[in-house]
């Protein structure tokens, strides 16, 4: 059985036929070909696959593509606009919030929502809101700094 799905990803419309069992993250990576969204686990702990689905951060490994039929999606590839890095991306770069880079796209998308909900987060809030994203390289220290950088920058706009 395959089913038609259509969705808008980073402003582009896509239509495909997929097996119902295909996970959204596989649809994005394998079918659409946007490989910035990563898969790091199979139990929805690591958060490397975090995307913005209809305005909310979700783990794309825990959604079937058919469930996202008709959805508006933003992935890491859609965050920078007109070649201009988003302040969160800038923060990660400025504050060395990444090393191997594998958790980074999911981490950044989680931060995107974090700053929407908590524009002036405390360190404790940042750490609590990122409990769904695992990083094995940074010890989180500079990720916190990157979020603080982005928060300040976005508040100044």
């Amino acid at each position: 059985m395959t089913l038609p799905v259509k969705m808008t990803i980073n402003g582009t419309n896509y239509r495909h036929e997929v097996e119902p069992r295909m996970l959204l993250v596989h649809y994005i990576r394998e079918v659409v070909g946007l490989t910035g969204t990563h898969v790091g686990c199979d139990t929805s702990q690591c958060g490397a696959c975090t995307i913005i689905l209809n305005g909310q951060a979700v783990k794309a490994c825990n959604v079937f593509a058919v469930q996202a039929d008709g959805a508006q999606i933003m992935t890491i590839e859609g965050l920078a606009k007109n070649g201009q890095l988003h302040p969160i991306q800038e923060g990660f770069w400025e504050k060395h919030g990444l090393q191997c880079g594998f958790c980074t796209p999911g981490m950044i998308m989680a931060v995107y929502q974090l700053l929407e909900r908590y524009p002036k987060p405390t360190e404790a809030q940042i750490r609590h809101q990122l409990e769904g994203n695992l990083c094995r390289c940074t010890g989180y220290h500079n990720i916190v700094k990157a979020v603080q950088y982005a928060a300040e920058k976005m508040a100044g706009r």
């Binding site: 990576r29 910035g36 990563h38 898969v39 991306q89 990660f92 770069w93 980074t104 796209p105």
Partner: peptide
């Protein structure tokens, strides 16, 4: 120095093995 590899990672343009098709 800020890292030169970061622009590709923070924009989702890294190329990991699983991205090879």
């Amino acid at each position: 120095e800020k890292r030169r590899e970061d622009p590709r990672f923070i924009t989702g343009r890294g190329q990991y093995v699983d991205d090879v098709k």
